[in-house]
Design a protein around this nucleic acid. Structure first.
Length: 922
RNA sequence: GGGCGGAUAGCUCAGUUGGCAGAGCGCCACCUUUACACGGUGGAUGUCGCAGGUUCGAUCCCUGUUCCGCCUACCA
């Protein structure tokens, strides 16, 4: 019988392309509720449809694929559900850029045609990342690919919105929100990134109405907002100022008078001047202070964050000042205001000051608090159950350390602004009766002079929405039949929050939904724990009445080799596709898995990936070796009757199966990967294959049939054990081995076999390892070439070990490349012999030819000194009566044993030294 | 300001009931030995961040401290 031959090095490219296609064609990844087995489901965190695969995805997806392939092989009814989200702002930006290149704008082509354009774009480019995912070997059920703008998912969005509205958990109101003046839309709190910047703290004099020579000095970092001040606050218990509460100050640069109020929340006695200006329309704290004191809100910036002449006029700003600052952005207005104040001697001090500014997470533009009517989710009633689900363990966060982070954030959660002033997304299902809201619907009022931003439709605070799944036909109030739909769309995360059930068919009660919800595990980076995970939990509990997943595995961030965050502008991005091209997909996957230790960011360097490419090649060659040596009969002998190497490797494999499985159960992908690496390279290749070579290479050897069987069994099992980590390589090898079934993908995952465990063989191996170690080291000391045949003498203090040596004789001779003499050390030659000792084991190597023995002598002297040190340490400990009185008996016995053994070794080595010196004549 | 995490070999990191400090990569020496030079064999390398404390004994537990990272926060 003949077996296939493999190339000398593993070439991943052709292999990967081939298997990707076959797996997909054969439908191995396709899930059905009717499949047998306990369901195991992961809903992929949907990547942004505009995106391409970066190394963070590669990590996230590799981990999921490991879990999925592992569970599939374990016989679970596995569903890995893929998809993308519509990424409202990002996608809109992409298509707008295209339009701009064509010389048109979204306003000029209109909403409907714009949406069409986005769909066209999606059809042409939206599957980039999907194709890349397939290259990574991801075993998703691609037949179930979902998109947040799909009809089904959109239906779920409608349903959720309407029900939340009916439950009074969605409301519309005029609030201060984070506004990105570039994206021209509201953002939720968590879409704002905070960054520390060097700013200035300005002290400005506000003269008292009663006595203009007396001035109240306020401190502010944003003097340009002073036009919108509607009060000044001091601390009610501040002896410097509290008598002024109730009086008024003259607001500089305007002809307005504003009150002085007492506010213990806003004012910190220690900070600044102790007096704070209140600008309710442009600062979150001031907004709240304004509520407390019933202050008016004066908006002075427009939606492009430019000073608005109309607003300034209403705010009573001096005409000359308006002319100086109108149309300026905040930062320019600031220096202008600084000048104006200075000219009036009202600016008393400017100090350096560190402060945090908010930036749009997508475009990094400084966000501006902006007063506008928006839609919100009232979040507290939803957060309560989501907190409880984690507290009572229905949801487990791994690593556990993030639990407190989650709980803390959830307990302090603020209402969620869900409306976005863009076009791409789920348009809010609310309509306004044109008749009833006549005064509140403002169409075509372009605020800023801008050609690109044509008429905006503004629906003012107070307009009464009619919310429903379909457009109303008649106004219940006035019977009117003319309506205008809310132009805003929903935050993308609103639809992503429904992902675990909307993708399974909800609101229909589909078999998919019944089978796979709740999903099993969610794998995610920390960056979206709040963005997304928290919201899925809230929505899942609200609409499904159960958690969306049992386990949340939070993995690390991938950084570059220097620990820097990867970014295109820094140019330190590792492109996973390039890496896959260069080193193979399996190498990348294995690298990421091996580095996924909890609580630590991954610093990825290409050398690491190269190292695992080498590992793949090592495995490839082990398989190659096996195939070369597989010709000939095989015999399945009971494990206990097999040869020492066979029994040993089965025992180690058994151990590795247990270890890998338990590490996977604990989400310790790093340890599982390292266990595999250690076993395959350092046990299977380094020792097992070497040990069985004589047997295989002598076809007459009676052990050969059994060993061939063990060789192929262990290799085949190892391939299955490794398959979730390195799917392509293992499939390719597995197919060349004698096997049953059509693909490794659908084979059983190895389970521990108690008959494989052989502790005695492991003990025997330890002795073999030790002995060969000394023999090899001696060869180097004596400068023997690897091939040179030698004679070596072996003896052990313990009879049992001596017996082991006897059993190992042939293996020792083979691996030591020489002739073994087993005899008590006292009978060994006293000359022309280098004798080394460890743990009761003595090894003597015959010295032949001209050899410089000084290296050997140095080695012995060094070992002796190490022994002496250790002996003294142990003696010291054992002399210590506190130690012998208080330490556990087994520790004491262990110390005594070690000391005894060391002393014996020491004596032996001393005589060895003497012999050596005699030979050297020193 | 608060919270969390990290600091162990040149580099990247393991080290879970406190009892001989490990791996991978890199480095040095030797070796093309018929699976593999993307390889083999041997070797060097650590006051386990710093200072105290608990303990017979601390990389591990406690306290303080320094540096780095992340999250979070209304000191205008």
């Amino acid at each position: 019988m003949s077996t296939p031959q493999l190339d000398k090095t593993y070439d991943p490219k052709a292999v990967e392309a081939r298997w990707s296609q076959i797996w997909h064609q054969q439908g191995y990844f396709h899930a059905e509720p009717t499949h047998p087995g306990e369901p195991y489901c992961i809903a992929i965190p949907p990547p942004n449809v505009t995106g391409s695969l970066h190394v963070g995805h590669a990590l996230n997806h590799s981990i999921q694929d490991i879990l999925i392939r592992w569970r599939r092989m374990q016989g679970r009814n596995v569903l890995w559900l893929p998809g993308t989200d519509h990424a409202g702002i990002a996608t809109q930006n992409v298509v707008e850029k295209q339009l701009m290149a064509e010389g048109v704008s979204r306003e000029s082509i209109g909403r409907e045609r714009f949406i069409e354009r986005v769909w066209q774009w999606k059809a042409a480019s939206g599957d980039t990342i999907i194709r890349q995912q397939k290259r990574l070997g991801e075993s998703c059920d691609w037949d179930r690919l979902r998109f947040t703008m799909d009809e089904g998912l959109s239906k779920a969005v409608l349903e959720v919105f309407v029900r939340l509205y009916e439950d009074k958990l969605i409301y519309r109101g005029e609030r201060l929100i984070n506004w990105c003046p570039r994206c021209m839309t509201a953002l939720s709190d968590i879409e704002v990134e905070h960054e520390d910047v060097k700013g200035k703290l300005y002290s400005i004099d506000y003269p008292l109405e009663q006595d203009p020579t007396t001035r109240l000095t306020v401190a502010t970092t944003r003097p340009e907002t002073m036009f919108g001040d509607t009060a000044v606050a001091v601390h009610p218990e501040d002896p410097r100022y509290n008598r002024l509460i109730g009086q008024r100050v003259r607001l500089p640069l305007t002809h307005r008078l504003i009150p002085i109020v007492g506010d213990a929340i806003l004012v910190d006695l220690e900070f600044g001047t102790g007096a704070v200006k209140i600008t309710p329309a442009h600062d979150f704290n001031d907004f709240e202070a304004g509520e407390r004191h019933g202050l008016p809100r004066l908006a002075i910036f427009d939606h492009q964050a430019l000073l608005d002449p109309q607003g300034l006029k209403i705010a009573g700003v001096d005409q000359a000042v308006i002319e100086a600052v109108a149309g300026l952005p905040a930062i320019k207005a600031r220096s202008k205001v600084e000048q104006l104040l200075k000219a009036r001697s009202l600016l008393t001090k400017v100090d350096d000051h560190k402060m945090a500014i908010g930036k749009c997470y997508r475009c990094k533009t400084v966000v501006e608090p902006y007063l506008s009517p928006q839609w919100f989710v009232k979040i507290k009633p939803l957060a309560g159950p989501a907190i409880q689900a984690v507290e009572d363990g229905r949801i487990r966060i791994i690593p556990e350390g993030w639990t407190n982070n989650y709980l803390g954030w959830m307990r302090d959660i603020k209402d969620w602004c869900i409306s976005r002033q863009i076009w791409w997304g789920h348009q809010i299902p609310a309509w306004y009766c044109c008749h009833c809201n006549k005064e509140l619907i403002i169409e075509g009022a372009a605020t800023a002079a801008s050609a690109t931003h044509a008429p905006r439709l503004t629906i003012l605070q107070g307009a009464i929405p009619i919310v429903g799944k379909t457009a109303p036909t008649m106004c219940p109030a006035c019977g009117g039949r003319q309506f205008i739909q809310e132009p805003d769309v929903l935050d993308t995360w609103f639809s992503s929050a429904l992902w675990p059930f909307s993708t399974l068919g909800w609101p229909e009660q589909t078999p998919d939904l019944k089978t796979y919800y709740p999903t099993s595990t969610l794998v995610t980076g920390l960056d979206i724990l709040f963005f997304w995970v928290a919201r899925m939990i809230m929505m899942g509990l609200k609409f499904m009445g159960d958690v969306p997943f049992r386990d949340v595995y939070v993995h690390a961030l991938v950084r570059d080799a220097e620990g820097q965050k990867m970014s295109k502008s820094k140019g330190n991005v590792i492109d996973p596709l390039h890496v896959m091209e260069q080193f193979g997909t399996d190498a990348l996957r294995f690298t990421l898995a091996s580095m996924a230790s909890p609580g630590r960011d991954i610093k990825l360097a290409e050398e690491r990936i190269e190292g695992y490419r080498n590992f793949a090649n090592k495995i490839w060659n082990a398989a190659r070796f096996s195939l070369i040596n597989l010709d000939g009969p095989r015999a399945a002998i009971p494990p206990a009757e097999r040869t020492f190497p066979d029994r040993w490797i089965l025992s180690r494999l058994n151990h590795t199966i247990q270890l890998v499985t338990s590490e996977l159960e604990a989400y310790r992908f790093d340890r599982a990967a390292n266990a595999l690496y250690q076993f395959i390279w350092h046990e299977y290749c380094d020792w097992y294959l070497e040990l069985i070579k004589p047997t295989l290479q002598h076809s007459a050897s009676p052990d050969a049939p059994g060993t061939r069987q063990t060789l192929v069994d262990t290799l085949e099992t190892t391939m299955r054990l490794l398959h979730p980590f390195m799917p392509f390589l293992t499939e390719e090898i597995w197919q060349t081995l004698p096997h049953q079934g059509e693909s490794i993908v659908i084979q059983n995952y190895p389970t521990a076999e108690s008959t494989w465990a052989a502790p005695e063989m492991e003990e025997r191996f330890t002795l073999l390892d030790q002995t060969i170690g000394i023999v090899r080291a001696s060869r180097v000391l004596l400068n023997y070439t690897p091939g040179q045949k030698i004679t070596f003498y072996l003896a052990h203090d313990e009879p049992q070990r001596q017996n082991h040596l006897d059993h190992l004789r042939n293996y020792l001779a083979h691996l030591g490349r020489g002739t073994v003499e087993l005899a008590p050390a006292t009978t060994w030659p006293t000359s022309n012999l280098l004798r080394l000792v460890r743990d009761g084991l003595s090894v003597g190597i015959a010295i032949t030819g001209e050899v410089d023995l000084n290296h050997a002598l140095d080695r012995i002297v060094k070992e002796q000194s190490e022994q002496t040190k250790e002996i003294m340490r142990l003696e010291g400990k054992l002399r210590n009566q506190e130690f012998t009185a208080k330490a556990p008996p087994e520790v004491i016995t262990d110390h005594q044993h070690r000391l005894k053994s060391l002393r014996q070794d020491h004596v032996m080595l001393a005589s060895s030294e003497q012999q050596l010196r005699a030979m050297l004549g020193t």
